[in-house]
Design a protein around this nucleic acid. Sequence first.
DNA 1: TTTTTTCTGTTGCAAAAGCAACATTTTTTC
DNA 2: GAAAAAATGTTGCTTTTGCAACAGAAAAAA
Lengths: 210, 210
Amino acid sequence: MNFNFNMEEFIKKFENSCHKVQKKTFSRNEVITSYINKRNQFCILIKGNADLVRYDLNGNRTIVEHFSKNDVFGEVFYMITTNNELLVEAREKCEVLFYHYDDIRNKCRNNCKFHQELSEDLPELILNKVTNLNMRIELLTKRSIRDKLIGYFNMLSTRNLNKTFSLPFSLTDLADYLSVDRSAMMRELKLLKEDGFIKKNGKRITLVYK
Amino acid sequence: MNFNFNMEEFIKKFENSCHKVQKKTFSRNEVITSYINKRNQFCILIKGNADLVRYDLNGNRTIVEHFSKNDVFGEVFYMITTNNELLVEAREKCEVLFYHYDDIRNKCRNNCKFHQELSEDLPELILNKVTNLNMRIELLTKRSIRDKLIGYFNMLSTRNLNKTFSLPFSLTDLADYLSVDRSAMMRELKLLKEDGFIKKNGKRITLVYK
DNA sequence: TTTTTTCTGTTGCAAAAGCAACATTTTTTC
DNA sequence: GAAAAAATGTTGCTTTTGCAACAGAAAAAA
């Protein structure tokens, strides 16, 4: 989370807040929400990890977005065009705040401080999402599996300020995130190791050249 | 452009407005802006068509985003991570408004009505961009060239409320937009015609089944 | 702690996509 | 209106990716 908005402080204020905000808890593999006819839905993940997942007609599974602490999601960000299933699934124990976007925009009828503050920081929150999506597009437009892997590893490395970092999900999920075949990705990963570009120990990766 | 914000009306008001906003005109193939160290840049395309284009080290050209009338762009939406060249290029004669994002957010020092109004509608403007980017990601995550083409055509058809529509750019550019090899795409396009999924006459496409 | 499920790693083969090259048509520029 | 540049359409060949299948390791559930 960049910009001025301090999510931590914000969450603390939640204690004595508007009753229109709902806080819910989810356990591993539970569906947090499905994207269908909830155009007004706006959520903040305040604890845990979750994925926006698409299941298409060919049986392919795609991880459209990966969410971690303080990320925002919800159908207000998405225009449903196909009839593919779009679900936000909890990867681990999650806590989520549910809002109606209108309450943030047009001020909640209760006129509560909580919504008002969120409203003020809304542009930065959404702008942050835009930069994340642009990074994702940059990855997906790379032409080969190798370039996608290297691009993703570079991003994690930069974000971590370290040449060594952990993958935030399993290799199976990574393939679904990069939108490539898992076995082909494993093959490429092996070649990257053999060619000396990376070292790998489970989910722990080290970039050898940068 | 969805939501309440009426860009047309807004542009009209521009006449007697804040002098901090710059309006510039570009001709075909001119570079409108390059994304590098202008973190504060926020632009609105008020006339024409333009593309955000990336040139990578392998000589590949990718159309990252396609902008038409009323779309917003600028480095404020982008986190530069690689040293690839990122340019916004005019496809035809364009008119562009240049802002500083801070002037919109923190109110312009002139405290002008123009910036104030834009500021109020900012969340919808950015949200609109988010839904566009999500659509783009949905396209890019399709596994085959055929699925990408069909997905893109469906989107254009839906947007046009018609099974017949025109491609907004050349086939060469379409390949760069879908991030695939042009000749492979041409082959697939031919197969789509032969299999009776589409009819094609220049840039005019008709979806036969939907 | 044991059982069940999921994930990792690998392979041979098939299919899809990329590359290079060229002729032809269309568009732009002068 | 002629010349130059760019886009379209096509093909043969090569490389990359996907698919299917399976064994062993690791993780989750009972």
